Amino acid sequence: MPDISHDFVDECFEPSTARAASADRRMHTELAASLHHLAEAVQTTDGKLSDSLGDFASNINAGRFVRPSVFRHYFQLVTSLSSGDIDATKALISKMNATPPRNAHRTITHFGHPDADQISLELISDGMRLAPISDTLAQDFGTLLEAGFDLMQNALPELYGEITAIVHEILLGGAPHGDSVEFDGASHYQFWGLLILNPKHHNTPLEIVEVLAHEASHSLLFGLTVDEPLVLNPNEDLFASPLRQDLRPMDGIYHATYVSARMCWAMETLAASGHLSVTDHETALKAAQADRDNYKKGLSVIDAHGELSATGQRILDKTRAWMNRR
């Protein structure tokens, strides 16, 4: 298995296919290690459950890549086992075993389709405002999404490789009727490999590239912070965010600042690629400038109030160095 040392994962600000693939493998090896630990913890009290946990972990170590729902079930399993609910724990490991390994290619589905309804309801249970969309809208947006991926593959191949290594399922959904603020994209640390998009807010391949660069950068940070968090500020301390109207904890400010820089990289690099029309070239540069402005706002908050971990400091130093080059 590839080593994912600090020097490797933080070696550059720009997208890296190899780094993303190693982060994905690291998430799986950490999942397997934790399941082995849980298997040892219950061995004397429930041998069957211990065997089930250990067998699943061994399958991962043997090369099985799992779907985002399995990572979610793992978090639920830890909670149920910690509370002594053995029946719930057994039900969850059964669900994990019954879930097929992830597909070699990305899967695109939508809330409103039976295959996606369960994971959609899981997200809603965590407070996400998500509503079903029609099959027709999902199909039309799927075509646009592939056009965005094609543009990225041609113009930004390393970003395409990075996203392909991390994002294996894309869930499409809308916002509930009447919501004054709607999401355009989202990711969740408990669903490694999943990206959620709202078709309403993305109408061109260029906009697809921008939102993919945005949301996949959140996922990348999740994968780079297995050993320690980005920031040490208490979650109850809230600050102004460059991307949100509401106040956010410092971890959210850090994510928004890093993501803004990566969106800037994507739009500036795409504008310089020669793959855009004159109109899209101008649109990309305007978007990049807005991203730079958001980055500066977020950075000022981090510099004033952020208490960074060693990992958070290294990643931010690389980000700052790239943004200061232009």
Rank of each mutant, 00 (worst) to 15 (best):
G185Y: 01
H188G: 06
G185T: 01
G173C: 10
G223I: 05
H188K: 08
V167C: 12
F183E: 03
L212G: 06
Y160E: 05
L172F: 01
H201M: 12
E210D: 12
L212I: 09
I170D: 02
D184K: 12
S219L: 10
A216K: 07
F191A: 03
D251W: 14
I196M: 04
G161R: 00
E236K: 10
P242C: 07
I170A: 02
E207P: 00
A216G: 08
E210Y: 01
P229I: 01
L232M: 12
P229Q: 02
P242S: 07
A216I: 00
L221E: 14
L159K: 06
E158N: 15
L197F: 05
H188C: 06
Y254S: 04
P242K: 06
E228Y: 06
D237H: 03
D184T: 10
H177R: 11
M250A: 10
L197C: 13
P229S: 03
E169H: 02
L159V: 08
H168Y: 04
D246H: 12
D184R: 09
T225L: 11
P176L: 10
I163L: 12
L220D: 15
T164D: 14
I253Y: 01
F222T: 13
L247I: 04
S241T: 03
V181E: 08
V209H: 02
E158H: 10
E158L: 09
P242E: 10
E158Q: 09
S241N: 15
S180V: 07
E236R: 13
H202D: 07
L197N: 06
E162F: 14
P229L: 07
L220A: 08
P176E: 04
A165L: 04
H214P: 15
G185A: 11
H177P: 11
V167P: 07
L247N: 15
V226P: 14
G161E: 00
E182C: 13
T204S: 12
L221T: 03
G223V: 05
H202A: 06
I163C: 15
D246C: 14
P242D: 01
D237Q: 07
E215I: 02
L238K: 05
L171K: 05
N235A: 10
A213G: 15
H202E: 15
T204P: 02
G174M: 15
Q190A: 06
D237V: 05
P249F: 06
P229G: 03
A186H: 01
L232F: 14
G173S: 01
I208S: 01
L230N: 05
T204M: 01
I166G: 15
I208K: 03
V209D: 09
L230G: 04
T204C: 00
I166K: 14
P229H: 04
N233F: 09
L221C: 13
I253R: 12
I170G: 01
P249H: 03
